[in-house]
Design a protein around this nucleic acid. Structure first.
Lengths: 224, 224
DNA sequence: CGGTTGGATGACGGTTCGGTGACAAAAAGC
DNA sequence: GCTTTTTGTCACCGAACCGTCATCCAACCG
């Protein structure tokens, strides 16, 4: 899901934007100051950043420059001022687009989509997580055991990614059903079956799993 | 020097825009109809196209779609109407930005510069990429297999480039539809068909692809 | 130690997904 | 103008996959 960070000091506007974005299918997060926004973006980077120009403390222009320095995330300015000088300054600072408040959410959404078409993803090898000799790369859609690709199916892959994302923590069958399958209710045995199939593929000795372990009465977890 | 093509039926506005752009350091060319603009762009491609929405004959939306089909040039709409519906439709058709007349030349110029940062065409020369014996030269618009040129069509080439640019990463059919065709919605099977045709040309054994591989339920990726 | 509960596993039918050939429309070339 | 190439749609097929079930096994409980 596409994540958007909204940096805007006016709580009402920020929350309204977040809500509207979520209705459009984005995952929206918010920050009230430039400093907080930068911290958020550093810690868990969103795919797009919306930023107001008039912020308490660090102003919007510096905020944009800072964002651009750290990261290549597309930045859209949301401002009440439609002065040419501001628009030029914001774009010059590194913003990708500039829309004037009040914003029509449909327009904003369309502009974000247009940006997505242009946004470059960083080159280089896709990042992977390691669990011993097990390698999971969500971006490459690939699982490897000691360097050798392991063919896994879509559901198995999603299941594995979900477990990897919460590495070391137990996930109940219920949680897995909900997160991987989207079932709020259903037969928990389904999880067992897929865990079993996955073990056949990724565990050296499927009967004595080393990474994908069962916690009786609780669920499953993936450990290093 | 950066070349801009202005498609606008009102002579006065078009000439004024051209003049202003030239003062900003661009080489500006003009066309009074969509048809003429498309022909111009095909014959001697500009780096940016500005297009009015209300044109005699072919309308602006179709003109944008057409431009997007042929090539990846950034398109900015210059329109007198600031209706959300028009803006969304234009961006949806493939435009990169939308500014409302009368335009401040400084703003337009800043928006063009912002686009240049994102635009792939100007993003910097992507020299030939190799995938085993497969060679893709985006510059030369050419594909070679063990040195021998392979005749690929325009869509096939753009599909291949898109996959090459994200080498080793999965791209969903949806992403490919959006980035190669500019469709935000459409039949995903279209991608299958073109992938199939591409395989016939670039894979030694199209039934067992080595480079252009399918990830069931996820999409396609190009690997070395 | 027997009973009970929770987990593993193999088999099977229905469904989904991707590949492909045929075809019509559209574009490009002549 | 006409012909050829390219493109997008459709329908069909086969393989891969999914979910259910029944059965068996291991761990835990008294």
């Amino acid at each position: 899901m596409t994540a958007v960070l909204v940096i805007e000091d006016d709580d009402r506007i920020r929350l309204a934007l977040q809500l509207a974005l979520e209705e459009e299918g984005y995952a929206a997060d918010g920050a009230a100051t430039a400093e907080e926004g930068l911290r958020r973006q550093r810690e868990s980077p969103a795919d797009y950043v919306l930023v107001d120009l008039m912020l308490p403390g660090m102003n919007g222009f510096d905020c944009i420059r800072q964002l651009r320095r750290d990261d290549d995330v597309p930045v859209v300015v949301i401002s009440a001022r439609d002065d040419t000088h501001d628009i030029v300054a914001a774009l010059e600072a590194g913003a990708d687009d500039y829309v004037v408040k009040p914003v029509a959410i449909k327009e904003l959404s369309a502009r974000l989509r247009a940006l997505r078409r242009r946004a470059r993803t960083v080159a280089g090898p896709a990042p992977a997580q390691f669990f011993g000799d097990l390698e999971i790369s969500a971006e490459a859609g690939e699982v490897r055991r000691s360097g050798q690709p392991v063919p896994v199916t879509r559901t198995e892959f999603r299941l594995l990614c979900e477990l990897a994302e919460h590495a070391g923590r137990v996930l109940s069958r219920q949680q897995l059903l909900s997160r991987v399958w989207g079932y709020e209710t259903g037969d928990e045995r389904l999880v067992d079956v897929h865990v079993g199939r996955l073990r056949q593929k990724i565990e050296p000795d499927p009967a004595n799993p080393r990474h994908l372990v069962t916690l009786r009465g609780l669920g499953y977890k993936l450990q290093r």
